[in-house]
């Protein structure tokens, strides 16, 4: 999976934002730390498993919690059509 080319991200003052010109999608989304990390990874083709693995290395949190967080963020991105499977 990869971030759809219809979507763009930017880092402003340490905070990541997501936007798109896709019909039906309005405005910008301010990302938390988890979403920001995942969006960084999604700039290149990757998998849910690889993202979880990378997050486990980068964050000091239980793997099960990380898996849940990653799934939640990916589901949100799917809902707005930001993921290219």
């Amino acid at each position: 999976m990869k971030l759809s080319s219809d979507f763009q991200t930017v880092e402003i003052d340490g905070k990541r934002y997501l936007t798109s010109a896709v019909r039906g999608f309005q405005g910008q989304i301010a990302c938390n730390e988890t979403a920001s990390f995942i969006l960084q990874k999604l700039r290149r083709r990757t998998s849910e498993k690889a993202i979880v693995k990378a997050m486990c290395r980068a964050f000091d949190a239980p793997a099960a919690q990380i898996e849940t967080d990653v799934r939640e963020v990916l589901d949100s991105l799917r809902r707005i059509g930001a993921l290219k499977e």
Binding site: Q8, V10, I12, D13, Y17, T19, S20, A21, Q28
Partner: peptide
């Protein structure tokens, strides 16, 4: 938010900004 991030529409700022591609 103190900041606005959006994808542009229209061609009036070409060649610097390209429609629906640049934000």
């Amino acid at each position: 938010e103190g900041v606005l991030f959006y994808r542009i529409e229209g061609v009036s700022m070409q060649p610097m900004l390209r429609q629906k591609r640049d934000a």
